[in-house]
């Protein structure tokens, strides 16, 4: 692999990584705003797949190859299912999602009171507050990065840990999945009319 060393020097330096990080993260932020503010639920589902793609790109930057691929695999299928369900439950022509109308007036046309306006900006307040809280927590800590590198073969490390130290949580996760599977089937199963029991016809 010596022939690639020169390119490797250029690509893996910190500036390129930073540029890639900002590119991907700005893409992810814009797409996630698109998810929560697109009028059409189905289109926002497709945008959500874009967000997850960007996030798995970030995982690749963080050298978590296995998780990036698992992310793509699980969410490409999972979110498509969400979209399909949304398709079944909404009729885009008859039911406009109006929650993103900027409603400056109340229903009868009178100007709204400051209290109602506060209710409108409530979600924004919640969002800003949560970001502010988490960001303050992040900045109040001085993070000491251990200068080591992640081993390129960390799939093996993950597998070993999952089957030795963390085998009990792993089993619990599988039980959880089974429970979720059965529960989902039970919930989503169409209710049949109670069977009418007729006695004495056969036999």
């Amino acid at each position: 692999m010596e022939q690639y060393m020169m390119l490797h020097d250029y690509v893996s330096n910190a500036a390129a990584e930073t540029a890639l990080f900002y590119l991907i993260s700005i893409f992810a932020i814009i797409m996630s705003v698109g998810v929560i503010s697109d009028r059409n639920v189905i289109r926002s589902g497709f945008i959500l797949i874009g967000v997850f793609g960007a996030i798995s790109g970030l995982f690749l930057l963080l050298q978590a190859q296995f998780l990036a691929l698992a992310q793509v695999m699980i969410y490409a299928v999972g979110i498509t299912l969400v979209v399909v369900i949304a398709l079944m439950l909404t009729n885009p022509r008859s039911e406009k999602d109006t929650s993103y109308e900027n409603e400056p007036v109340s229903k009868d046309g009178s100007p709204i009171s400051p209290f109602q306006r506060l209710r409108l900006i409530g979600p924004a307040f919640v969002g800003i507050l949560s970001f502010f809280t988490i960001y303050t927590a992040i900045r109040s800590e001085s993070w000491i990065a251990s200068g080591e590198q992640v081993s390129p073969d960390n799939v093996r490390v993950l597998g070993t840990a999952l089957t030795t130290t963390y085998s009990l949580p792993f089993e619990f996760a599988s039980v959880l999945l089974l429970a979720a599977l059965i529960g989902a089937i039970m919930l989503a199963k169409a209710e049949r009319p109670t069977p009418v029991i007729e006695i004495g016809i056969d036999e």
């Binding site: 992810a28 932020i29 996630s32 705003v33 998810v35 929560i36 503010s37 996030i55 999602d97 929650s99 993103y100 409530g122 979600p123 924004a124 919640v126 969002g127 800003i128 949560s130 970001f131 988490i134 960001y135 992040i138």
Partner: peptide, 14 residues
């Protein structure tokens, strides 16, 4: 944190 906040905003708002 930012993505979390955007998700929180969407969850409360939609």
């Amino acid at each position: 944190a930012l993505l979390f906040a955007i998700g929180m905003y969407g969850m409360v708002k939609s």
